[in-house]
């Protein structure tokens, strides 16, 4: 009886946890294990594993030019996208953190891209990039520059997609960084002003150090999200031209749902998982040390 009473937290607790446990098991843990399992098999049309292939799927993808190219494109895409979108959002957040009349309006505009879906953004940018009627080429024409084949030229396509993604990410990054700025204690600035510190000194000595946990968080999230980009690729370029924008999730999607190669697609998915895991661990190992907590 005593034990029954003492274990009340366990019993009630497990009951409350049950939905989460079941759902995580069903839609995260089991599929993760199954992905690992499938990555060692060749599968038939229905996705059923038919032939144990050992690590063949892995050696196959790593020796295929297509996948190596996809990894390279993904890495470049992340390098083009993450630093720029965080930096722009940081500048915007610092500007929008000033107490000025009408600042709410600017904050609303700055965060607006967060409310616009990947699909809608990509369609809008598809038009901006349009070779003959798009805004960008119209602007180039107006200043007498030659037109650029934004999405059709393999030299430009990845940059164009990156530009779209930077724009898409700015809203969320801005909102998070602004929240971080507003958590900084007002009195620090006041005493710094009394000590005669100028705008940029305050920025360097107070704002950036105290903002570092937020920046650390947003960089980690951006990295993870950027590795997972799919919608803009599907709508803007379909991985082309000549696979220059065949990012890893798009590659997995094609391998699995166009070519029905669930085995090799799963091996690619495991590589994606490993990369995200490593990036997260490295971030926490090296990033965290440089972070200043209040």
């Amino acid at each position: 009886m005593k034990l029954w009473k003492r274990s009340v937290n366990v019993r009630v607790g497990l009951l409350y946890l049950l939905p989460s446990i079941i759902l995580f098991s069903m839609f995260v843990f089991y599929p993760m294990a199954k992905t690992i399992y499938l990555s060692f098999f060749l599968t038939n049309q229905n996705g059923l594993p038919v032939y144990f292939n050992g690590i063949e799927n892995y050696t196959y993808i790593f020796s295929s030019d297509e996948f190596r190219n996809s990894m390279k494109a993904t890495l470049l895409f992340v390098i083009y996208t993450v630093p720029v979108s965080v930096l722009i959002a940081l500048i915007m957040a610092i500007l929008a953190n000033e107490k000025l009349k009408g600042i709410g309006f600017y904050r609303t505009i700055f965060s607006s891209t967060m409310g616009i879906s990947v699909a809608a953004s990509a369609v809008v940018w598809l038009f901006l990039f349009h070779p003959s009627v798009g805004a960008f080429n119209n602007i180039l024409k107006a200043i007498n520059l030659p037109a650029v084949q934004w999405l059709l030229d393999p030299e430009w396509a990845l940059l164009s997609v990156s530009l779209t993604t930077i724009w898409m990410n700015i809203g969320f990054n801005f909102l998070v960084i602004l929240g971080g700025l507003q958590n900084i204690d007002e009195s620090l600035y006041e005493s710094a002003t009394i000590d005669g510190a100028g705008y940029f000194t305050k920025l360097r000595r107070i704002t950036i150090p105290l903002l570092s946990p937020t920046l650390f968080f947003i960089i980690t999230i951006s990295l993870i999200n950027t590795f997972q980009s799919f919608g803009q690729i599907d709508i803007l370029t379909k991985g082309g031209p000549i696979q220059s924008t065949n990012l890893v999730v798009y590659s997995i999607y094609k391998e699995a749902f166009v070519n029905y190669q669930f085995g090799t697609a799963s091996a690619q998915a495991i590589v994606l998982f490993a990369v995200v895991l490593i990036v997260t661990i490295l971030q926490f190992k090296f990033g965290e040390r440089k972070v200043h907590y209040q």
């Binding site: 995260v28 599929p31 199954k34 992905t35 997972q228 749902f257």
Partner: peptide
């Protein structure tokens, strides 16, 4: 319960796309 909490949090590191094939089959 702490262990369960960390187990839950660890799912943040699993990208949804890495599990989409079995999820789709399921």
């Amino acid at each position: 319960s702490n262990l369960i909490f960390f187990l839950f949090i660890s799912t943040m590191m699993i990208p949804w796309e890495a599990t989409m094939i079995p999820n789709f089959l399921l």
